[in-house]
């Protein structure tokens, strides 16, 4: 129904990619469904009562902090998000900060929160935060980066001129989709750090679970042989089941 599509587009694609979790799991871990009609009965429409507005921050949707931040009966002011079209900022990108006290400085994106149009630039746009302050202990001061809006806060850096530039998504002759700098028409490659997930830095560095995982060589092995048979026929043949009874004619209505 309407509500499912409404909920569906809330979590960004990059977040799902970063989490390395199935989309269905992310959905069921952050959704708050208070009532749902039973499914499979014609008399019940596919209706549900669920929380519609969630506050997305640096707490990722599948975490306990997110749930704590979005407890039932907590309502916060609406966040207005400027439409950005196609997302073009990835982890590891070199960007220039366009606002704030670090205006004009360049840095590397180290976190992307797509739900809020945020990027965090390493070591820039920072403030000090005191953590663990106690009556006896003065606390530890740590430097933490504040988010920057992708629409106004940062711009990608042109690899040739090293100046901030607008970009456009185009296709190469090989059919790959690339970001092209409008200042110098150079391709801005998507950095390797963009494929980093919560589990591993890059796909090659994943450590296999010996008991549970299938080896990559087994996965890519081609065992399919085209054959004029349905799945059931094929399985019956391979298991030596012979069936020569002819089913009676039946009618579908």
């Amino acid at each position: 129904m309407r509500i499912f599509s409404f909920l569906g587009k809330k979590v960004g694609d990059l977040t799902i990619k970063y989490s390395n979790l199935p989309e269905s799991y992310i959905k069921r871990s952050y959704e708050q469904v208070y009532w749902k009609n039973p499914t499979g009965y014609p008399q019940y429409p596919a209706a549900q009562i669920a929380r519609k507005k969630y506050r997305f921050t640096t707490h990722r949707p599948w975490t306990g902090q997110f749930r704590r931040q979005n407890e039932p009966n907590t309502h916060r002011k609406k966040v207005f998000l400027e439409p950005v079209g196609e997302w073009s900022f990835f982890k590891g990108d070199r960007v220039e900060v366009m606002v704030g006290k670090d205006k004009g400085k360049q840095g590397i994106v180290n976190q992307v929160i797509q739900e809020r149009n945020w990027v965090f630039v390493e070591g820039l746009n920072t403030h000090y935060r005191v953590v663990g302050k106690d009556k006896k202990f003065p606390g530890v001061t740590i430097l933490s980066e504040a988010p920057l809006l992708v629409t106004t806060g940062v711009k990608l850096v042109d690899p040739e001129t090293l100046k901030p530039t607008e970009i456009e998504w185009r296709y190469t002759e090989e059919g790959d989709k690339v970001r092209v700098s409008l200042a110098s028409s150079r391709i801005i490659p998507i950095p390797k750090a963009a494929e980093e997930t919560i589990d591993y830095k890059s796909k090659e560095l994943y450590i296999e679970n010996k008991e549970k995982d299938t080896a990559a060589s087994e996965v890519t092995k081609i065992t399919f042989q085209p054959k004029l048979a349905t799945f059931e026929m094929d399985i019956m043949e391979s298991m030596g089941i012979k069936e020569d009874r002819v089913p009676v004619k039946s009618y579908w209505y």
């Binding site: 390395n20 994943y206 995982d213 299938t214 065992t223 391979s238």
Partner: peptide, 26 residues
């Protein structure tokens, strides 16, 4: 949470084909 480029569950599909199934069901 963990996941990656390796498929979850199946120890070696094809080696199981070798130790076949014809004798006693699957």
């Amino acid at each position: 949470k963990y996941a990656s480029g390796f498929c979850y569950r199946t120890k070696n599909v094809t080696s199981m084909c070798a130790s076949s199934v014809i004798t006693k069901g699957f």
